[in-house]
Every structure is written in structure tokens, then in C-alpha cells.
Design a protein around this nucleic acid. Structure first.
Lengths: 357, 357
DNA sequence: CTGAAAGCGCTTACAG
DNA sequence: CTGAAAGCGCTTACAG
């Protein structure tokens, strides 16, 4: 009520409460060993004064004695240009920036094709007594298991890349894939119009279509049904397993013969497979939109063979996850544990700004 | 050479150099009063050890004794929805975030229409002994004067919004307007194609066309001349003084009668003036692209009357300027004093992400 | 259950 | 020209 506007320190609180600073600290951190009467008295002072911990004094002391340790569990990558190296780059950048505050990251890897490999990392991470975990929720059962174990130890978990419903509430830093699909719908329709035939192309690995693919396709369709009489606009779907390069399988050949594609929406990072395929089939004047700024996609964007790319900002996701956890662990401020990463539209002319986030 | 990989502190340096920590500090800060021999010895240790100041210990001490003060000189605003309140919001956010590190901002305002009002703020700012200045380079002579005065006092200056050549090198955090114009060209051409007639509309105040308007128009033209036979694509220009609302002056009426516009590029934030104008003139099927996410622009974007907006991220510019100066003033790290703000493409479906930056 | 004291790494006022 | 000491605000090990 009669809150001071000057920022009091722990010393002033102690004087006001007529106790020592040690006791104030015990109350502030709920360290116990304080009589309930004293605790009440101190808490009142703390609240009335609007006390806010000086985080840099706190970290100066703590960085030297107890470093915050974050476990990072992501898909293993063969090389640095792999998508999954990108969130790690963001994590690294944040660690570098915050290392003086006493924070570190340790990496664990799993195999995208084998849920078991994810499950096997859970024990080492939980037993490692980390302060928090950053991972991706690709495997539902295993993610639930991780989340349940982490909850028991009070370890916050931040999931990157994909949002999915889990048994208990998780934190997600990811792009809204449904909205990304809608944006793709608008951009592609702007180029193609209402007459041409659209294709949604899902080029999937042996695990099949993932949540992001479904959400993006749904968003894409939603754009058309909200803005146009959807039944007048033809949208075909190709689900294609990726075995090495995308090839003119009988299914695709048939699909493209039945209806010549004017606009193609590739629901993941593999849009670079389309231009060659179209060319070898003598299909021209087809507009393409896909995801992610991998080298091949960017090359086709620059050559004009791909019209738009949507950036998920994977580096930024990793960066935000680590900084958000730091903020939560040091200030109990959880507002940055969940983020809706902007759907960033990339064309040839502005791609240079985004190649590193 | 034989650099330690552990981060040494000033205490360890002092032991290695066989001097007191006070002396090490004198050398590190060039505070003088050290014999050249001692200085040399200490400097060698500092370099060999790869010493890096612990910035949080430094700020803990300094925040209590000497707060960094930044002067902000921007156009005065009548209301909070004015464009020029946006960079201030970003500055405020950064100040809030960094205030515990001991940084503060003080505001000065000038009248966009009167260079003199800018000039009159120079003395108070220079005499105010600020540590740095954030402003905008709208008036060439006055900006040069400010820069020259600031240089003498070793005050770094960061200019927002617009880049321009000044007598000495300044720091700029701004969007590249030429590239923004190119992006606008690509987006509009995607909707309109090579047959329709394009208009570049500059709606200017009594100071006339500004640097940004020229750069954007040039970028727009460059897109067409680089990608299409520019002489085949008709680009008309309307330069219109803004007196209250944009109206169907004889000039505009004539221009629109001679050639019906299919794509309109508004080179500043006033694209919201076009839809009503077109409607009252019974011109339909015209695509519009403009700048900035002001309320009216966003409303038309949502209604579909405006197709694309380009975001200059003014809040982000202010935020980056303050954080960049903090980094420079505390760590002598100047890499964040110049930034090329991404050309952010906004459509109805993703506008919600950007309304606050 | 509580207090007094040392210390995180850097900065500075004071003493010599 | 140089050193010893106090202090920034918080945390913790120790003593009682």
C-alpha cells in the first residue's frame, strides 16, 4: 500500500523489519528456519516495499558458486547445415551472452527415426540434475514421459519447433503452423489466382506426416475456405515418401497429368526438390512456396524457381528458449517460456536479412 | 600466446603482475598515474591472459554510483498512436530491462517541420553531459552540427529511421529503404503482373519528399529494371502534398483518368488514404502496398483493401539503439551500433505478430 | 531460530 | 606512483 518508490535493498528491508539480512534472505528464498511470526513480519515489509531483487548482485554471487545447467535434447545432425544445428546455434549464442551470469548448456542427441533413442536420454537427463530442459515434442509417448519425470523434479521443460497436446501443460516456443499455412495460402493465391490448380505436397520420411505438416495443410485450406468459395478452387494433395531425391513416381506423374499444377505448397523444408521435378516433366509457370532457408531452397529462391519461403527462425527459437529459461530460473518470470514465433515471409530481395536466424 | 583458458579476474592479474588490483584497474581504464614500466608489465599480462572484464561485477558497482545517461531527441508527438511514439516505446522497454545495470534515458523533442527546433536542442543535450545520443537525421545541416559537437565530447550518436551521408561517419539503425522498395516491387508485381499500370504515390508534408521516399521509389524501379524490360512496364508517379486528407485533386484525377492504376506503391505510412480515394473514383481491382502498421493501415490490410504492408519495426529500432549503446559504453563493443533492420513483409494473416514491434 | 561476517569481481576514495 | 580497504546488493557458511 504505502509502497516506497525507491528500490529498497535487502539491507533496508532488514532494518525496517528489525531483523538481520540473513533472516530476510531466508524468508525471500523460503529457506526455512524462521519463526512464523518473524516470517510474517518480514513478508509484510517485503510486500509493502514492492521489493525487487537486484538480479545482477544475485548473479554475481551465484555465478561463482552455482551455475545454472540446461540440458538440450535435439535430433542428431550429420553436418552443420542440417536444420537441427540451427536451434543449437541460437542456444549457443544465448549461452555466450549469458555465461557471465552463470549459465551453461549440455547437449544430448536422439535419432529422429527412433523414439526409443529419445526415451533412452530421459534417465541421464533427469539424473543429471539439470535446472531445465529444452527439447522437441516429436514423440508423444516419450514427450509425456519426459514431462512427467521433469515435473517431479521441478525441472521446467521448453519444447521447440512444434506444438502438441501433452498430458500436462508444456511450454512451447514455436511457429504457429496453422497460421503459416494460411499465410502460404494468401501468398500463393496472390500469384496464381482463383483459376489455377493447387497442390499441397508433403514429402515425408518413414515416420510419415508430422503434426506440422497437418497443421500447415489445414491452414492452407482454411485460407481458401475463408476467403473464396473453396469448392471452386481445386486443391490436390501429394503425400510422397522421401527416399533420397524426390522422383517422378507413377503417382506424381499421374497427379500432374490429371491436373497441371499452377501453385505448389510444400509443407516442409523440401521445396527445393520441386523445381527439378517440374522441369524434367516440362511443366512451366508453376509458383512454389515452401519452408526454411536451407541452402538449396535459398538458391532456388534467388534464381526465381521458388517464389516464397517461410522462415521458422530456428536459431531464434533456440535463443529465446535459453533466455526465457534464464529469466524464469532467476526471476520466476515465466512469460518468456511460451512464444509464438512470427511467420516471416521471405523473398529473393530480403532473404539476406534472415539467413542467420 | 600462452593464454589461460580459465577466465582470470583482476585479482589474479594483480598477482601475476606483482602489483595491486588498484594498479591493474588503473591500467585497464587508462586512468593514468602509473609508471610506464608498470603499465607495460600489466598490459602484457592482460593480453596474454585474454582477460575479459566481468561486466556484471562492474555494473553492480557502477550502477550505484554513476548511471549511464542517454539523450533521446525525436519528433514530438500529439498522441500515442503517432509513429514517433514507437521508437520511444522500444527505448523504454530497453531501459526497463537494463535499469538495474544503471542506465537511463531523457527525452528531448523537436518539430518535424522546423529544423530550427532541432538545432535548439543541441546545446542542452551537449551541455547535459550525456553519455550518448539517439536521434533521427532528418535535417542535414543540423545533424552535422550535432554530430560534430558530440564528437568533441566523445558522445556516440545513433541515428534511427533513415540513413544519410553526413560529414563524419554516424551510426545508423534503420531499414534499407532501397531494398524495401525492391521488395515492394516484387510483391506488387506478383499480384499485378507485367501488363497493369503501376503508380508510385508520394504523399508528402510541406517539407516535400524525404530521403526514404526517394530510396524506396528507386528500389521499386530497380526491381522492375532488373527483372523485366522496364520500358515495357508503365510506372507513373504522383507527388501529392498532404493537406489533411488525400483528395481527388485535379492532378490525381487526371493521372487516374489517363491510366487506370492496377498496382499502387505508397512510399510511406499513408497508404490508408488510397482505398477511399479509389472507391470514390470507382476504380476497382487495384492492389496496394504501403509502409507501417498504423491503425488505419492495419484495418485496411485486414479488410483486404491493402494487400501488403512493410514493417520498419520502429519499436525494435529504439530497443536496439539503446541496447547497442549500452553494450558499446560498457564493453567498448560497437558492432551493435549499426543495424540493417529486416524488411518485414506483413499480410492480413501474420499482422498480429508484428503489431508491437 | 537468528545474527555477524566473508565473499562474488570490480571500482574508487584515501593514505602514503 | 602505488597499495590497502571499503563498498555495490545478495548469498551462504558458521557460530551461537
Amino acid at each position: 500500500m504505502n509502497s516506497e518508490n525507491k528500490n529498497l535493498g535487502i539491507k533496508e528491508l532488514a532494518i525496517l523489519a528489525e531483523v538481520s539480512i540473513g533472516t530476510v534472505d531466508r524468508v525471500l528464498h523460503n529457506r526455512g528456519g524462521v519463526s512464523s511470526e518473524t516470517k510474517k513480519k518480514v513478508l509484510k515489509i517485503v510486500e509493502d516495499s514492492g521489493y525487487k531483487k537486484n538480479i545482477i548482485a544475485s548473479r554475481l554471487k551465484l555465478a561463482a558458486t552455482s551455475v545454472i545447467r540446461i540440458a538440450i535434447l535435439v535430433p542428431e545432425t550429420k553436418n552443420d547445415s542440417n536444420y537441427w544445428s540451427l536451434p543449437l546455434q541460437g542456444v549457443d549464442a544465448a549461452v555466450t551472452e549469458l555465461s557471465v551470469f552463470g549459465i551453461s548448456a549440455e547437449y544430448f542427441f536422439f535419432d529422429l527415426l527412433h523414439p526409443k533413442s529419445f526415451g533412452e536420454r530421459i534417465d541421464p537427463i533427469i539424473d543429471g540434475n539439470f535446472d531445465a530442459i529444452i527439447t522437441v515434442p516429436f514423440f508423444e509417448a516419450e514427450s509425456n514421459r519426459l514431462l512427467a519425470r521433469a515435473r517431479k523434479q521441478d525441472m521446467p521443460v521448453v519444447f521447440l519447433d512444434t506444438e502438441r497436446t501433452l498430458n500436462s501443460k508444456g511450454n512451447f516456443i514455436r511457429q504457429n503452423s496453422f497460421i503459416a499455412g494460411m499465410v502460404a495460402g494468401r501468398l500463393l493465391h496472390g500469384l496464381v489466382g482463383s483459376q489455377g490448380i493447387y497442390f499441397v505436397v508433403n514429402i515425408v520420411n518413414e515416420r510419415g506426416k508430422q503434426i506440422n505438416n497437418y497443421q500447415r495443410e489445414n491452414g492452407f485450406r482454411a485460407f481458401f475456405s475463408e476467403n473464396y468459395k473453396s469448392d471452386q478452387i481445386e486443391i490436390h494433395v501429394i503425400n510422397h515418401p522421401m527416399e533420397g531425391e524426390l522422383d517422378l513416381t507413377p503417382e506424381i506423374q499421374q497427379a500432374f497429368q490429371i491436373a497441371q499444377p499452377k501453385g505448389i505448397f510444400v509443407t516442409n523444408a523440401r521445396s527445393y526438390m520441386l523445381p527439378r521435378l517440374l522441369e524434367s516433366n516440362n511443366i512451366v509457370n508453376t509458383r512454389i512456396i515452401g519452408f526454411d532457408l536451407n541452402q538449396k531452397n535459398v538458391a532456388y529462391l534467388k534464381s526465381g524457381a521458388i517464389d516464397f519461403l517461410i522462415n521458422q527462425k530456428p536459431q531464434y527459437q533456440g535463443y529465446c528458449a535459453l533466455k526465457g529459461l534464464y529469466k524464469y530460473l532467476t526471476e520466476e518470470e515465466d512469460s518468456q517460456l511460451n512464444m509464438d514465433i512470427p511467420v516471416e515471409i521471405v523473398v529473393k530481395e530480403n532473404v539476406s536479412f534472415f539467413e542467420n536466424d
